Amino acid sequence: MPYDFKGKVCLITGAGSGIGRATALKIASLGATLSIQDINHDSVSETHRMIGENTYSEQSDISSSEACPKFVENTIKALGRLDFVFNCAGINPTGIDLTDTTDEYFDKLVATNLKGTFAITRAAIPHLKPGSSIVNVSSIMGVSVASRMSVYCMTKFGINGFTKSMALELGPKGIRINAVAPGYIDTPTNAGVVAGGDAVKKQEEKSGMGRMGTAAEIADVVAFLFSDEARYMNGSVVEITGGRT
């Protein structure tokens, strides 16, 4: 076991599938107790079942400013402490010309990808002690750009700026915050996976390794960032892309 998280409590949003679920399973396997959330009740319940009984889970919507502090409060009530936060919940993009982008689409992405991360982090900070760590999910689209992805890129570039600013704010308190920027990952919500066929092939061809990444490969990096092995990493945005071109 590379890291020992026994006695630690990790809160994960968007834990019902994909990177969130894989990270929940990884962190639990390293000894931590989990508090998990997802907007889909059945999905988060299944993740809870996979982890085991010593877990707190709830169905909620992190785009709600009321739901975020309630989730953190419920975590403290159920588990007594908080050490790690993984802000994973988010909405993947749909390619849309800006002139065709509705206010509803803009509001949905900003509320979940940006406001949710902000609200969970704000609620968690008073409960975090020196040695605690936060990891946010950005994207390769928060580092590079693509046409017809302007709103999604806006939210993910925003996550990177938020992470770097909070690193300066929380670092003196002994709390680290970093972000991971995944490339094309084989998850149920990846637009290429949903489309299948040539869409998957195109994503694979854009990776230097000739394949999509797995959710478990992202989870491994998140575990490292939580660990003392990454004790001087603060404000970093770690690209996990297989060498995306």
Rank of each mutant, 00 (worst) to 15 (best):
G243N: 07
P182I: 00
D38H: 06
I12N: 00
K26S: 05
I12H: 02
T214S: 15
D42Q: 12
I240S: 04
N87H: 12
A28S: 15
R176H: 11
M233K: 04
V221R: 12
D103V: 07
A22Q: 06
Y152M: 00
N54T: 12
V221S: 07
G210L: 13
E217Y: 03
L170P: 13
I96C: 02
M233P: 00
L114Y: 12
A167W: 07
D4T: 03
A22D: 05
A111L: 05
Q203V: 04
T189M: 05
I27S: 00
K77L: 15
T55I: 08
T23V: 10
S227T: 06
V110Q: 03
A230F: 00
S150R: 01
L82C: 12
S207D: 07
Y105I: 09
V237H: 04
S60G: 14
L79C: 14
K26L: 04
F224C: 02
F118Q: 12
N113F: 10
R122W: 02
V137Q: 05
V72F: 14
N74W: 09
E58R: 13
I125D: 07
K70D: 14
G192I: 03
L168C: 10
C10K: 03
G14E: 06
T75F: 11
P182M: 00
S57R: 05
V193L: 02
D103W: 05
S64V: 02
S17V: 02
T187Q: 03
E169D: 15
E104T: 14
A199K: 01
F118P: 03
N87E: 09
L225M: 12
P126G: 05
H41Y: 04
S207M: 07
T189E: 14
G116H: 03
S147Y: 12
F84A: 13
N74M: 07
D38L: 04
I177Q: 06
L98A: 10
N40M: 05
A89P: 09
A179G: 13
D97M: 06
V85R: 10
L34D: 00
L109F: 04
T155L: 06
I218P: 04
D100G: 10
S138W: 10
T187W: 00
D42L: 08
N113P: 07
P130G: 14
V143F: 06
K164N: 12
S147L: 13
A195V: 13
G197I: 13
I91E: 01
T117L: 14
F5G: 03
C88H: 12
A15M: 05
N160T: 06
